[in-house]
């Protein structure tokens, strides 16, 4: 099962992204592309004439994709949650390094914003992991999935993660890192053709990663976990379609004053009660 999930991860992620695009379109009263559109994009991109700024930059995109896959597989194999979160950080940092390595203003600005976003999001992920420990007695995903659901005892932690989700997925209102209208995609701008494919697919894996985290709140009850993940998916889409982008420093402020405080309160409650 773990093997199957890990191997199929990019395909699952692609479908998820396809569904997301369809739903976004429906929310905007458009017909929307077919569910398989992400894969069509993928093939079309691969078919284009490849162009690179320099080889190092292009390769770092590939390594970023592999790292995102590894982070996901740590989760799917029931590994330690903190280790998975650190691998997630590792994969993002590789993309940031790639972004900095080209002499492009947009790419470097994007990399910097990506870093600042991490500074707001990472502590929330870590506090989420600690709250899982407090309610299930382990940091290991395999044990969390056999423990009773922790959604009722850590509602605040769930809310915190929900607020952080748009940031993790680079969706409005927290999408300053790749703001298309402003810095034309940030770190992604200098990737093209096949090399953009890798960055594109890595985003699908990231989606799977964060929704798996949400799923963990269900514990042994996969129905609850699934329902929570679907709920979170809708909330994120709704926010994406109905909010305007906030400036990156406001994003840090908002995330700290809302999500971090909630996640912290959740842990303090867990310790006290």
């Amino acid at each position: 099962m773990s093997w199957l999930l890990t191997l199929l991860a990019p395909i699952l992620g692609g479908f998820l992204y396809g569904i997301e695009r369809k739903l976004t379109a429906r929310m905007q009263s458009r017909k929307g592309p077919p569910i398989l559109q992400p894969f069509f994009d993928l093939f079309k991109l691969a078919d284009k004439r490849p162009m690179v700024v320099h080889s190092y930059h292009a390769f770092m995109g590939i390594i970023h994709f592999v790292a995102a896959w590894v982070a996901l597989s740590v989760l799917f194999f029931g590994g330690d949650l903190l280790v998975a979160i650190f691998f997630h950080l590792l994969s993002t940092s590789l993309l940031i390094v790639a972004g900095y390595s080209v002499k492009s203003t947009y790419s470097r600005l994007g990399a910097t914003r990506e870093l600042i976003a991490i500074a707001a999001l990472e502590p929330i992920l870590i506090l989420t992991a600690i709250s899982f420990y407090l309610h299930t007695g382990s940091f290991e995903v395999s044990k969390i999935l056999t423990a009773p659901t922790s959604i009722f005892t850590s509602v605040l932690g769930f809310l915190a993660l929900l607020i952080a989700l748009p940031g993790l997925l680079k969706k409005s209102p927290f999408d300053a890192a790749e703001a298309h209208q402003e810095i034309v995609g940030g770190v992604e701008i200098e990737f093209s053709g096949f090399f953009y494919d890798t960055v594109y697919a890595a985003k699908w894996l990231d989606m799977l990663f964060v929704f798996t985290l949400v799923f963990l709140f269900g514990g042994s009850s996969f129905v609850v976990g699934g329902a929570l993940a679907v709920f979170a998916f809708f909330v994120v889409l709704l926010a994406d379609n109905s909010t305007a982008r906030v400036r990156y420093c406001d994003m840090v402020r908002l995330l700290y004053s809302l999500a971090f405080v909630l996640a912290g309160a959740n842990i303090i409650l867990g310790v006290v009660l």
């Binding site: 004439r49 490849p50 162009m51 690179v52 700024v53 320099h54 080889s55 190092y56 292009a58 390769f59 770092m60 390594i63 080209v102 002499k103 492009s104 947009y106 790419s107 034309v184 701008i189 200098e190």
Partner: peptide
């Protein structure tokens, strides 16, 4: 990645 140089791929200036 730092060692390998891609051959036969066009180099472009950043946007």
């Amino acid at each position: 990645a730092a060692k390998i140089r891609l051959k036969g791929i066009d180099k472009v200036k950043p946007y």
